[in-house]
Amino acid sequence: MKNILTTLCFLFLSSFSFAQDDLLDILDDENTETDQSIVTSTFKGTRIINGHSVENRKDSELEFIISHRFGRINSGFYDLFGLDNSNIRFSLEYGLTDDLTIGAGRSSFEKTYDGFLKYSLFKQKTGAKSFPFAISLFSSIAVKTLKDYDPDDKRTFAESLSYVSQVLIARKVSSSFSYQVTPTYIHRNTVSIAEDPHDIFALGFGSRIKVSKRVSINGEYFYAFDKSTSINARNSLAFGVDIETGGHVFQLILSNAITMIEKSFIAETTGDFFGGDIHFGFNISRTF
């Protein structure tokens, strides 16, 4: 009887030891899977300045954005330093999921309608399974409806279309500094003259420096490798201040571009920033 009790105790203790080992293995596996953190708030809003950031709307969130760019500051007092002239864009953006945003807008410049999709492909993560960058894919289509053509040479709908594709690659280096690199491809179905390229490749650079809990300073530059000659196109340069106030993000902007969609401010900007061709503007967004 004593031998039997000894054997049962041994088996019980052995099974407890095995179970304990199995439990520790499970916990180790779970810790390995969860010992990571998704980096958030790389930028305050869905725009760095003119161009998109990697930030998306959350699932079922609706954002209304009003963007405004005035005329050139160096136009003088007669035009009140550009305030007499303006370009405005209204847009709605909706989070289909946390990773997929759809949006549409209308610009007064060239009476352009545009729509886009933005998808978060990878998120920046820290921890055991870290990933150094956040990567999103962006694609848009725009149609120019301004009737600036000869009535006998009316454009078709297809001839008025242009397309943009971008890869948004961003990194939040610290709580105070983030940057983004944006390879860009633009295709325009119609150009002004034969010498103007239908296809334009560009590379964008953007950054954000956080100066307080609710305020940051942003910079943005797009270098176009292919330029239109009919309009003496220049690279887009912009600086801005982001101010967050609850559900609003308010951006104050200085840029040599008066337009606010990718095909225009990347490929069709004509202002010389350092020559005084600067447009003051702002973006106001409200999330519901």
Score class of each variant (00 low, 15 high):
residue 3 N to I: 13
residue 5 L to P: 01
residue 5 L to Y: 11
residue 5 L to V: 08
residue 8 L to S: 12
residue 16 F to W: 13
residue 21 D to E: 13
residue 23 L to Y: 14
residue 25 D to N: 13
residue 26 I to N: 12
residue 26 I to Y: 06
residue 31 N to P: 00
residue 40 T to Q: 12
residue 44 K to D: 06
residue 46 T to V: 08
residue 51 G to A: 13
residue 53 S to Q: 05
residue 54 V to T: 07
residue 55 E to Y: 02
residue 65 I to Q: 11
residue 71 G to E: 01
residue 71 G to T: 03
residue 73 I to V: 15
residue 74 N to C: 07
residue 75 S to W: 05
residue 82 G to P: 02
residue 85 N to T: 15
residue 87 N to H: 11
residue 88 I to C: 08
residue 91 S to I: 09
residue 92 L to W: 08
residue 92 L to V: 12
residue 92 L to T: 08
residue 95 G to V: 07
residue 98 D to E: 12
residue 99 D to R: 01
residue 102 I to N: 00
residue 104 A to E: 05
residue 117 L to P: 03
residue 123 K to F: 00
residue 123 K to V: 11
residue 124 Q to S: 05
residue 124 Q to F: 00
residue 133 F to A: 02
residue 144 K to C: 10
residue 144 K to E: 15
residue 145 T to F: 03
residue 147 K to Q: 14
residue 156 T to S: 15
residue 159 E to A: 11
residue 162 S to T: 07
residue 170 A to R: 02
residue 176 S to F: 12
residue 177 F to K: 09
residue 178 S to N: 03
residue 179 Y to F: 15
residue 184 T to I: 03
residue 186 I to F: 04
residue 190 T to I: 09
residue 193 I to Y: 02
residue 198 H to Y: 09
residue 201 F to E: 04
residue 202 A to H: 00
residue 203 L to K: 06
residue 208 R to M: 14
residue 209 I to F: 09
residue 209 I to L: 14
residue 216 S to W: 03
residue 223 Y to A: 12
residue 226 D to V: 00
residue 228 S to L: 08
residue 230 S to T: 10
residue 231 I to Q: 09
residue 232 N to P: 01
residue 236 S to A: 13
residue 240 G to I: 07
residue 243 I to W: 00
residue 248 H to W: 02
residue 249 V to Y: 00
residue 249 V to Q: 09
residue 250 F to E: 10
residue 251 Q to R: 11
residue 252 L to E: 07
residue 255 S to R: 00
residue 255 S to A: 13
residue 256 N to H: 11
residue 263 K to G: 10
residue 263 K to V: 14
residue 266 I to H: 02
residue 267 A to P: 04
residue 271 G to M: 06
residue 272 D to G: 08
residue 284 I to H: 06
